[in-house]
Design a protein around this nucleic acid. Structure first.
Lengths: 252, 252
DNA sequence: CAGGGCCACTTCTCTAGAGATGTATTGCGG
DNA sequence: CCGCAATACATCTCTAGAGAAGTGGCCCTG
């Protein structure tokens, strides 16, 4: 049916709003179990699909998470802090607490898998690196894991001609990583540009990051420039948005 | 039913994957109409709810957008670029221009509504501004519209004692905006910190930004520090993620 | 030819039921 | 007291149908 008895919005939205308010009021804390399909059916006298739809709203908003066979639970949010400008970060102009208290903590980011290949450059990457259409690039794909959960997919592109024969073409780039090797080539990066946006993940990204429903990804495209202003690396990162807060400090 | 004839995943995911692939292959471009509920029911021989579920996946991924009574259409993505660094350079607001004037090329970002109040500071804001729990702050809430579509909700907090009697407490802050007025008080900001994260919008945010289903919001919390390192303003912004790309440039 | 009303088509909401599948607990047997 | 199987319960998938509400094109009237 569609008869609206109480107010103007659909039943499932009313139920969803009620649950949302309860969570925000703290009646359900992180990890707590919410009323399930059967509870909502009995409480509100609706069909199963309607109750499911209400719970689906909370999941789509990232507030709740369903565990099959167990119930629907309130999610929590404990992001890690990622600084764009690390050296200038805290002690230089300290005295600032942050809005979203994110314990950087002693948790450790670990590389889960590395894959290094040589491929033709994607058009967008080629344009930024100033390469021709069919020029090859060295591609380094990595996945980072925090506390057993994947949080970051990183794809790094470098001109194949530049890095040929260096440790950059091997899974382990050695101490200091890619940037140290670039410095040894006299092309160490001195300037960076990061472009940030966000969207919902595709099916493959959701799987590789083990994302629950309702969690967007943050896309960070970092371009590294050497002393002469030439782009030497493009790094496209896909972050679990529930795991990260990005911080950028800068002067006026 | 649940009998799986073709493969292992649910029907609705198979259908969704097929549509997604078609969009990515370019068989449907931005603005094109996708097969609707009835088409999918006939094509795949499934129930209406199953077809709806498949279309729901695409909407949740932000790929498609349903227009009631019309159909389901492929969305497009044309963001505006927002530069964190140069945008806030002193010359801009010092010279009397709005800090937003540099943001968009030809399109124009317009303030849609302004609301200035004095309230008790939220706990998180009070902590950052170094105020006591029950200290009052001047709160400036604004909504920005681009091409008729709201894209940004901005909530700015300043110590009430600091800005009392200035144009900051009025809807129109005058040439150069809030930061120019702060400079006149000898507390002009010289350093900024921006914290960026992303999540799905709540119901109210989705409505105020007129967000379709499946579009996350980007949250930017900017703290402005004066020459003595004291926080003078906290600005919490909620951005339509489909309308923005944030850019940050910095040196190693 | 312009304007307005009608109508076909679309998505949205909701019902009622059923089998599949994964989870957690309980209780029995060793 | 431990281990394992049975079981109750949870979500997930899907069916079939129907009324509500919004959109846009078509036709008829003026």
């Amino acid at each position: 049916m569609s008869g609206r008895e109480t107010g103007r919005q659909p039943k499932y939205q009313r139920i969803a709003a009620e649950l949302r308010a309860a969570v925000e009021a703290g009646r359900y804390g992180p990890g707590d179990r919410l009323p399930g399909e059967n509870d909502l059916m009995a409480e509100h006298g609706v069909a199963r699909m309607t109750a499911r739809q209400a719970l689906g709203v909370l999941q789509a908003e990232g507030i709740a998470e369903a565990r099959k066979g167990a119930g629907v639970f309130v999610r929590d949010f404990r992001p890690i802090r990622r600084r764009g400008i690390e050296r200038l970060a805290r002690e230089r102009w300290g005295a600032g607490r942050s809005i979203w208290s994110a314990d950087i903590g002693d948790r450790e980011l670990v590389v889960d898998s590395v894959e290094v290949t040589e491929e033709a450059a994607p058009a967008a990457v080629a344009a930024v690196l100033g390469l021709g259409e069919d020029t090859n690039v060295c591609v380094r794909r990595r996945r980072f894991v925090l506390d057993g959960k994947p949080v970051l997919l990183s794809t790094s592109y470098l001109p194949a001609a530049l890095v040929a024969g260096t440790a950059i073409t091997r899974p382990d780039t050695g101490p200091g990583g890619t940037y140290a090797r670039l410095a040894e080539l006299g092309r160490g990066p001195v300037r960076f540009r990061e472009e940030v946006r966000s969207r919902m993940p595709g099916a493959e990204e959701a799987e590789r990051l083990a994302l629950p429903v309702g969690v967007p990804v943050v896309l960070v495209a970092r371009t590294a420039f050497d002393a002469e202003g030439l782009a030497v690396e493009v790094n496209e990162m896909v972050l679990d948005s529930s795991a990260y807060v990005l911080e950028y400090d800068f002067e006026a």
